[in-house]
Amino acid sequence: MKFSIIVYAAPASSQAASTALQFVKTLLHEGHDIYRLFFFSDGVHNTNRLVVAPQDEMNLPQEWHRLINNYEIDSVACVSSAIKRGIINEQEAKRHELDSSTLLDSSEIAGLGQMVDAMINSDRVVHFG
């Protein structure tokens, strides 16, 4: 079955992003597919490549990154949520004359239309916030 997952929560401040990751790992393991991961609101912090986690804690953005690459998942950070939280790709960095990009290259930045498209084209949509 085709799932899309919408994540509203940042790592490190609540459990929801971690629950979402565990849920996605399980559904892939069970043979289901992900049509799209969509990171919305504070969820975009899950796509920050500059996160450093203490050695004994999980680095959630890196965990997502590995999973997205392993399963070649389509992963999107909402543009309006992302840029106001400092999650920018190289293109946005150039446009706003910033000295660095912060987005993990496993995700792309796109508009809310990608969330609607994900819902329309998925059998199931699960929100984690």
Partner: peptide
Amino acid sequence: VELCVEHDKIVS
């Protein structure tokens, strides 16, 4: 995951 499959939609 199975509960999500068994039901038509999920409300969080």
